[in-house]
Design a protein around this nucleic acid. Sequence first.
DNA 1: GATATTTTTGAACGCCGTTCACAAAATAAT
DNA 2: ATTATTTTGTGAACGGCGTTCAAAAATATC
Lengths: 205, 205
Amino acid sequence: MGSTRDEKKAELKTRLIEAAEAEIISEGLSGLKARAVTARAGCALGALYNAVEDLDMLVLHVNSRTIARLGAALQEVAPAEAEDPRAALQALAARYAEFAVAERPLWLALFEHRLGAGREVPEWHRQEHAVLLEVILPHLARLRPDLDRAALGLRARTTFAAVHGVVHLALQGRFVGVPMADLQSEIAGLVETLTAGADHLAVRG
Amino acid sequence: MGSTRDEKKAELKTRLIEAAEAEIISEGLSGLKARAVTARAGCALGALYNAVEDLDMLVLHVNSRTIARLGAALQEVAPAEAEDPRAALQALAARYAEFAVAERPLWLALFEHRLGAGREVPEWHRQEHAVLLEVILPHLARLRPDLDRAALGLRARTTFAAVHGVVHLALQGRFVGVPMADLQSEIAGLVETLTAGADHLAVRG
DNA sequence: GATATTTTTGAACGCCGTTCACAAAATAAT
DNA sequence: ATTATTTTGTGAACGGCGTTCAAAAATATC
């Protein structure tokens, strides 16, 4: 049995990630405590720092799982071969908001977590966010045949960020945010305006 | 001298707010420490809790000043009587992004600060954010005469949040964010698309 | 000047993330 | 099977944090 050690190590890591996920769900990201996580995972406090670098990295692993689920949910709703790009973008935005509302604490952790001073998000995790742009890109490309690849890449980021901003401010309950009751209809209105404008600008050149 | 006491009390509070502002600028919101603030303000640690409720409330006072400056900057750039609503919205969005870039730590504090569990942002501070919507509303109203007052109020929130989202993700340096070098041009493109779409939808009904 | 009130002070408290000397366990070597 | 070696688990201890509070200093009132 040359693999028992690595197996147990990986198992503990998984248990810690799941415990952290559960803690974020019930207590929020700011309520995530090393002692509570290790207690829930059934290990000693110090074991956390053997399994992962520190608490920040544990959050990154939770976020990694969340974004995988989010990406899957988005890819499911609007395949790249979909006929109508406007309908596809509407479906994507609606699904994005649904996910954020349904999994609020985990979705918030995705965007509100900050690494300690001077530390950089590792590249493997940065790349996981690419799916958020990839699901938009093909539909946006059909809508704006006048834009080149580079401009489309930027516009995909901008379009995502616009919808994201509406969802984020609403979920935070900020004064300037849209009330939760109007979130889906406002996002639909925003995407309608964006796609109408895109169509108009593309046709005119 | 019947007023010396209240004067000194208010003076200390001001000094603490200014010290907190300076600390946020140099260390970021997460680098704000009670000991550093009181040292900079030239008072004892405990004095902070006599001047304000706690550190969170001190941040709220800093945010109050920031949003006043931001509101003034926006009102200056696009008076409500401006002729062209599309140009006005472009100018507002550009100015918003400029302010965020120029005062990054303070602007971030405005949107990333969270009160401790269960606590609510006091109403006086919530209302201070209204200016962000008020500067948009008249121009949006001209662009969308088909919408009633309630729908316009919601759409102002949505429009603000869309631009805000692009700026926020860019300033955080997130993977999905637009590169800082392209921020202004992407915001211009977003507003162009939004206003073109709004115009199109309003004309058709 | 004496008394009452308010403000200032900084040591102390409890909680936090993180470390580390040590114990236990698993693997390797003999 | 026994010993040696390496890895993993443990939890007390550390330093830093926001916050509190009894005592001291400062100010107001008479």
